[in-house]
Amino acid sequence: MKHFDATSDCRLAMSSIGVMRRIVSAVLLVLSGLLFVFGAREMVLLGMIIVMPASWDEHAFWVHTYNLFMALEFVFMIIKYFEENYHFPLRYILYIAVTSVCRSMMVDHGQLVACAGAIVLLAIAYCLVTARNALAARFLPDEATAA
């Protein structure tokens, strides 16, 4: 019968977490590279729209601008994930979601009520996250730094 050995079990768990972290990091690096290429493509398309005024299409211009900013936001989100030591605060995701929904409202006017509802839900989620962090800081000081 095998006895519980805390040090070897802990070492095994930490090494498997390290392997998973490396895999996630590699996937995120590939994803950020693809997003960078997508953003460069959108910049070229925007440049073509601006340089050729005969083919000016305002809707296409705003769609390409929207796509460019979304690609940049995701790349910056991946960079922030690595800067924060493999941690990404939930409030950043909420900020990005609100700005994305606002940009979507500017490009596509067909779903304004649904987008407004999404912004209200995201604002409520942000209030809940902020309240949770405030309560954790007051009553659980060790856990407040982890959130």
Rank of each mutant, 00 (worst) to 15 (best):
R91L: 06
V129A: 09
F61P: 02
F139M: 04
V44P: 00
L28K: 09
L135F: 15
A136T: 01
V19G: 12
R11M: 14
K2N: 11
T130M: 13
R138K: 10
T130Q: 15
L140W: 15
C10H: 14
R22G: 07
M20A: 11
L128V: 08
A71V: 00
V101Y: 00
A147Y: 15
A60K: 15
H109V: 05
N133S: 03
V30D: 06
L72G: 06
F36R: 09
L35T: 01
N85H: 04
F36W: 13
V51A: 09
M1R: 12
G18Y: 07
G39M: 15
R91P: 10
E83T: 04
R103M: 15
Q111M: 11
G47H: 04
C10P: 10
L72E: 01
A131K: 12
I17H: 14
L35R: 04
E58L: 14
V51R: 06
D5I: 01
I96R: 10
L45G: 04
W56Q: 04
C115Y: 15
R41T: 14
V129D: 07
D142K: 10
S100K: 00
A123K: 02
A137K: 11
R138P: 01
A6F: 12
H59V: 11
S15G: 05
M77A: 15
I49F: 05
H59Q: 13
S104G: 02
E58R: 12
V98A: 10
V19K: 15
V107R: 02
L31N: 06
G18C: 11
I49T: 09
T65P: 03
A146C: 13
R91A: 13
T65N: 07
S15W: 07
R11H: 09
E83V: 12
H59M: 10
P53M: 02
N133W: 06
C10A: 15
V37G: 02
P89I: 00
L34W: 00
L35P: 01
M20V: 12
R11A: 10
L35W: 03
S16E: 09
T7D: 08
A40W: 01
G110D: 10
A136V: 01
E73Y: 08
F36H: 05
S55M: 14
A114K: 10
F76W: 10
S25C: 12
L29T: 07
M20Q: 09
V19E: 14
Y95N: 11
E73G: 13
G117I: 15
V30L: 11
V63D: 05
R138A: 12
V37E: 03
G18E: 11
D142V: 00
M77C: 14
I93N: 13
N67T: 00
V75W: 10
S55I: 14
M20L: 14
T130P: 05
L94D: 04
R22A: 13
A97D: 12
G47P: 03
V30F: 11
L122W: 08
Y86K: 02
L28F: 15
M70S: 06
A97G: 13
A144D: 02
G39E: 05
L34F: 02
R11L: 10
K2S: 07
A137H: 11
F88Y: 14
I23H: 13
N85T: 12
M20G: 11
A97F: 03
V37I: 15
V107N: 03
Y81K: 03
